[in-house]
Design a protein around this nucleic acid. Structure first.
Length: 241
DNA sequence: AATACCCTCAACCGCCGATAA
DNA sequence: TTTATCGGCGGTTGAGGGTAT
């Protein structure tokens, strides 16, 4: 059923001009309209009430942030999307000054592509079928004052080696936070399967206690994005040629 | 310089649930 | 209980700007 305000004649559509913005802004900030459907007539606008509401909510509201999304906001959006799916309005409630529309656009134009490039399905946040896999020979050693030079290793076979390949690592059953993998290759993406369960679900907290520095790598578990923290670092692995 | 293609994002559309009459 | 209206939401569109050819 059409909204009452939308069925009236002389309803403008399309982009808002500065004069319209000024009329709407002045009206809303100086009145408390009972309903959005009454706004166009009272504010002297040839728009429907829905359009006025949208313009106010998404653009004119004084509490809106105008700057680009921060890294923290992006991380928050990814986390919330994993939990809530495409419930943009709910996600927006956790990000003050951001609108559902803005977050939706940001997701569709930027975040989606980033996740895909990291080998993750943006809808499910699970791993996509890897276009390339490289079984690697990897070793773990601690990079921490208390545990320096402790070392253990595990091996697997290798199909190919490319410094920028997306690769999947199946850690040994006994992986734990005493055995933090060391990664070379900044910007690479390392996918660690089952690390959360292997570490009792608190690998990040434990890893922070282990200490070290953070490498510029992207690290994911197969079922959730792991939170980075500057207090620990993944260090070394080597490909089998 | 001209054209095609791509990307971003503001705005619209259609649907849904809540509420009032 | 039914109907009309509204606010709110998610999906989609298309204008306009940027980039590649």
């Amino acid at each position: 059923m059409a909204h009452n305000c939308c069925t009236k004649e002389k309803v403008r559509k399309g982009l808002w001009c500065p004069e319209e913005d000024e009329k709407l802004f002045n009206f809303i900030t100086s009145h408390a309209p009972a309903s959005w459907s009454s706004v166009p007539k009272l504010a002297g606008l040839e728009r429907c009430g829905k359009s006025c509401r949208l313009r106010w909510m998404n653009y004119l509201r004084p509490d809106l942030k105008k700057e680009c999304f921060s890294v923290e906001e992006e991380t928050m959006i990814i986390h919330l999307h994993r939990m809530l799916g495409n419930r943009w309005a709910q996600i927006a409630r956790h990000l003050p000054g951001r609108t559902d529309n803005e977050i939706k656009n940001f997701w569709n134009s930027c975040v989606k592509k980033k996740l895909i490039s990291r080998g993750l399905d943006p809808n499910t946040h699970n791993l996509l079928p890897a276009p390339k896999t490289a079984h690697i020979n990897y070793s773990y050693h601690l990079n921490n004052n208390n545990y320096n030079n402790q070392y253990c290793s595990s091996t697997s076979s290798s199909h190919e080696s490319s410094p920028l390949a997306l690769f999947s690592v199946a850690p040994p059953d006994d992986i734990n936070v005493d055995h933090v993998p060391f990664i070379h290759g900044h910007g690479d993406t390392l996918v660690i399967n089952n690390i959360a369960s292997a570490a009792g679900g608190s690998v990040m907290e434990e890893a922070q206690q282990v200490g070290g520095l953070l490498a510029e790598c992207c690290i994911y578990s197969s079922d959730r994005l792991l939170d980075f923290d500057d207090s620990w670092r993944l260090c070394d692995f080597s490909y089998l040629g």
